[in-house]
């Protein structure tokens, strides 16, 4: 018998220390597969964020670097410009990308840097104990919005794909989710496109992935999977927000 599905060689054998039902693992598996399928593992440099996936350097079977919070796109810019033969991806959470690193991501997108950004939006600061993030939904409870996010006091969430789509710079922007096999397959396609764009020197690609954080949300894994599909997708519609390959045709 032949193995048709299993742990990809783009991941190390190290078991991930994420909570049960954490969406990070699903996205790791997709990236691990692409490193092999696109034959880029040997020349890829990944950038781990600060957040629960800070240990991503132990999980991805490629070169990795781990800069301060939110600085992934700036470090990716430097790496890609000095080592253009390398494939550079920045893996970031919503706290990392939309709070601490808001400036870095906007300018990298505006410059259309030839990098791939994987943005894990779980609407919360997972690692530090479930505090409110810029992406926390209105009314959503967190340890710093115990009665639910009050838009009068705590403002509105940031929709990163829509915000970046207001810039002329970025080449490709898409929002996906990992709550169902169908959405996981869509995420696989989007991430492949985001890596292919860099291989073909097209420029800045970002894939936002709505991802479960059962622990931060105070839900069981199965509840979290459902809540993502019902509540989160409402506020963050899935789809392609920019694809300049369409304009080139």
């Amino acid at each position: 018998m032949k193995k048709i599905f299993g742990r990809p060689a783009g991941l190390t054998e190290t078991l991930q220390r994420y909570c049960p039902g954490c969406g990070h693992g699903i996205v790791h598996r997709i990236i691990g597969e692409l490193l092999v399928k696109l034959d880029i593992r040997e020349r890829t440099i990944g950038i781990a964020p600060v957040g629960c996936s800070v240990f991503a350097d132990e999980y991805f079977n490629c070169d990795m670097i781990q800069p301060p919070h939110g600085r992934g796109p700036a470090v990716a810019t430097g790496l890609k410009r000095t080592r253009p033969e390398c494939i550079v991806f920045s893996y970031q959470g919503d706290g990392d990308l939309a709070a601490m690193g808001t400036s870095e991501i906007i300018h990298a997108a505006a410059r259309n840097e030839n990098i791939t950004v994987i943005f894990i939006n779980n609407a919360i600061f997972g690692m530090t104990g479930g505090q409110m993030a810029p992406t926390t939904l209105p009314g959503m409870k967190s340890t710093t919005s115990v009665k639910g996010r009050d838009i009068e006091k705590q403002g509105y969430p940031i929709r990163v794909c829509e915000m970046l789509a207001s810039l002329d710079g970025p080449y490709y922007l898409e929002r996906c989710a990992v709550d169902t096999p169908k959405n996981v397959i869509r995420s696989e396609k989007a991430l492949k496109t985001a890596f292919m764009n860099q291989i073909n020197n097209k420029g800045f690609s970002l894939v936002e992935i709505l991802s479960m954080c059962p622990t931060g949300w105070g839900q069981t894994p199965v509840q979290a999977k459902k809540w993502l599909g019902e509540a989160m997708v409402q506020y963050y519609p899935l789809g392609v927000y920019r694809d300049r390959s369409k304009e080139e045709k």
Partner: peptide, 8 residues
Amino acid sequence: CFKICPEP
């Protein structure tokens, strides 16, 4: 089942 498994 494989695709939805976080570990995998």
